[in-house]
Design a protein around this nucleic acid. Structure first.
Lengths: 187, 187
DNA sequence: GACGCCTTGTACCGATCGGTACATAGTATT
DNA sequence: AATACTATGTACCGATCGGTACAAGGCGTC
């Protein structure tokens, strides 16, 4: 018996299973398969079972966005942190070849189970972007509209990219949004 | 034993189950529950089981959009058919309180099972809208961009509306798109 | 080396999964 | 009324579901 794993190491692996199969489509056997961990280890790290695993995965995703996207939007110069957002998002979603786990959870009744985490992920993103736009000189109303439209558009682009199998949809959408945020106030 | 159902009557009911729970989350027992039909009837109407039920549901949704949205976009005056699209979409998705079944199927591995139907639903929508915009006087490139952005934005708005529990997101997005499509060429 | 604690594999649990078999009931046709 | 076909309920199938129990192995500490 090897004994070398830590909970932190295994969360990203579990995340990919949930991302690919959704909450209902993710079975314990699939998780043991991709992590190489047996049920013994799994329930040792996550006594709450599948539910706790999903919660850990959501927290992990959330922490990444908080660190890489939201915090910079709040703390760094707007122009710079927004540019960083485009890069970060394109990397994270693999230019449209990867799907948003939080968005996927939102669409079925899984949402009710994790409602708080899911809502917070999106509202914090929108608010951080909105405030960055305001600090960049946008009128408050337009900033709110623009931020909502960009975050929503990213989700939609991911849906469409995966639905059509044409990942390029995502890149096109990203450059459109980028252009629109640059020539300010023309929302 | 009552014997009064037709396949056509039961498809919309099954559709709501799939819409709410996704493909993996939809169990036969949930379907019997909401339709009132036992397994006997269900497998009588859908010998292919759950897979065929989902296929019938996708075809049903597709037929609705074809009839109410795509065909008018292709055949009627652009301005009029686009106006009809806004109304139709707002009704169909219950102003953001309902989710897109096709979009939900697209996000997990369910997509692979129904790839053709899912891709076709979106590409036909985008193409019909693009052509309507062109007939309305838009340059081809802008029309293609605008159509893609609108369809993608509707999906994103549905994700966000359900994620945040704030259905109003959907209405706001719809009016934004509507305004942008009106002052043509400013994409 | 002995002690504990963290980690792991395995066996097992009842429940539910999607699906099949089939006898019976309802209905239309004649 | 007899017949044929459509619907339906029920019982059952093996497989898998998420979860539990628990003994034994790895490893650091003393």
């Amino acid at each position: 018996m090897r004994t070398l794993n830590e909970r932190a190491d295994v969360v990203p692996l579990i995340a990919e299973v949930f991302r690919e199969f959704g909450f209902e489509g993710t079975s314990l056997s699939r998780i043991t398969e991709t992590t190489g961990l047996g049920k013994g280890s799994l329930y040792h790290f996550f006594p709450g079972g599948k539910d706790e695993m999903a919660r850990a995965v959501l927290a992990h995703v959330d922490a990444w966005f908080e660190r890489e996207i939201y915090a910079p939007l709040r703390d760094d110069p707007p122009e710079q942190s927004i540019a960083r957002m485009w890069r970060g998002v394109d990397d994270y979603f693999r230019s449209g070849r990867r799907v948003c786990l939080v968005g996927a959870f939102a669409l079925d009744e899984t949402r009710d189970r994790f409602a708080a985490a899911i809502a917070s992920y999106f509202t914090r993103w929108i608010e951080a972007l909105r405030d960055a736009l305001i600090r960049d000189g946008w009128p408050a109303a337009q900033a709110a509209d623009g931020a909502e439209e960009v975050v929503l558009g990213i989700q939609g682009a991911l849906v469409l990219a995966r639905a059509t199998g044409e990942a390029a949809v995502f890149g096109r959408a990203l450059t459109r949004f980028q252009a629109r945020l640059q020539r300010s106030s023309v929302v």
